[in-house]
Simulated assay, not measured.
Amino acid sequence: MLKKIWAICLLAATLALPAKAVECENWWWGFDAACSHISGTWNEGTGGLYLTGYAWHNRATYDKENIDSYNEFAYGGGLGYHRPIGNGNEEMIYAIGFADSHEQPQFHVGYGHMWYWNVAGPLRAGAGWTGGVFFRNSDFNYLPVPFVLPMLGVKYDKTNFYATYIPGGKNNGNVLFLFARFDY
């Protein structure tokens, strides 16, 4: 348990390091736009605390003995930055660490883009996507693995709740992952 807490603290400290200005216009086509979005969010964004909470394994795709052995309380957290990009939409960059299905540390570093619609007062609902790399011991020995996933969100003032679904096959993937961001 102490190793898990130490790993999350190390990840959070890494995010707190000062950023160096990045020149994006000389990057390859396509990567220059991605660089601009990420560096813009890093330099102009507002901080947020991320807390992970739940990883529901789809009962229709898992055997009961696997479900019974998995951890679904994906406790952990991280830090990130987000910034508005017009029409109430936003983009974010983040780094999170949490306990995976086997109670081992898993880490994500990513970018997210959300489109929001007003519901009532400060309550807003959104849809978007997130992509980046994750590091997981169970299947990949902490090698970086890229991901792109759909994301849904509900936002109320400075509190944000997100859900994403990790697709997969029989006894693999097919996980609904829930997490929150608290803006400061």
Rank of each mutant, 00 (worst) to 15 (best):
K3L: 07
K3T: 11
K4R: 06
K4F: 13
W6Y: 11
I8R: 08
C9N: 13
L11S: 12
A13I: 10
A16F: 01
L17R: 07
K20I: 09
K20W: 08
K20M: 04
A21C: 05
E23C: 05
E23V: 12
C24T: 05
W28L: 09
W28K: 11
W29P: 05
G30I: 00
D32T: 09
A33P: 01
A33T: 11
A34W: 02
S36C: 12
S36L: 08
S36Y: 06
H37R: 05
G40F: 01
W42C: 00
N43Q: 13
E44R: 10
G45Q: 07
G45V: 06
G45I: 09
G47S: 08
G47R: 04
G48Q: 12
L51R: 08
H57Q: 13
N58M: 06
R59S: 15
R59N: 09
Y62V: 03
D63S: 13
D63M: 01
K64Q: 14
K64A: 10
E65D: 13
E65L: 11
N66W: 11
I67Q: 09
S69V: 05
S69K: 15
S69R: 15
E72W: 09
F73N: 04
Y75H: 01
Y75C: 00
G76V: 01
G76A: 02
G77T: 02
G77A: 04
L79D: 03
Y81H: 14
G86Q: 00
G86S: 03
N89K: 04
N89Y: 03
E90F: 14
E91H: 03
Y94K: 03
A95F: 00
A95R: 03
I96Q: 04
G97Q: 01
F98G: 02
F98N: 05
A99T: 09
S101V: 02
H102I: 00
H102P: 01
P105V: 09
Q106S: 09
Q106F: 01
H108Q: 11
H108P: 01
H108K: 07
V109I: 14
Y111L: 05
M114T: 07
W115I: 13
W115K: 15
Y116Q: 12
W117Y: 05
N118Y: 01
N118G: 10
V119A: 14
V119N: 02
V119Y: 04
A120N: 10
A120W: 11
P122H: 11
A125F: 12
A125L: 12
A127M: 14
G128S: 08
W129R: 11
T130G: 09
V133M: 13
F134E: 08
R136I: 06
R136F: 00
N137Y: 11
N137I: 00
N141H: 11
N141Q: 11
Y142A: 00
Y142T: 06
L143N: 14
P144M: 04
V145P: 12
F147D: 10
P150A: 15
P150S: 13
M151K: 15
M151H: 10
L152P: 12
L152H: 07
K155W: 12
K155G: 06
D157C: 02
N160L: 09
Y165T: 05
I166T: 06
I166Q: 12
I166R: 01
I166F: 12
G168T: 00
K170I: 05
N172L: 11
N172E: 13
G173P: 03
G173I: 02
N174P: 02
N174K: 02
V175T: 15
L176D: 07
L176W: 13
F177G: 06
F177Y: 15
A180W: 06
D183I: 09
Y184M: 13
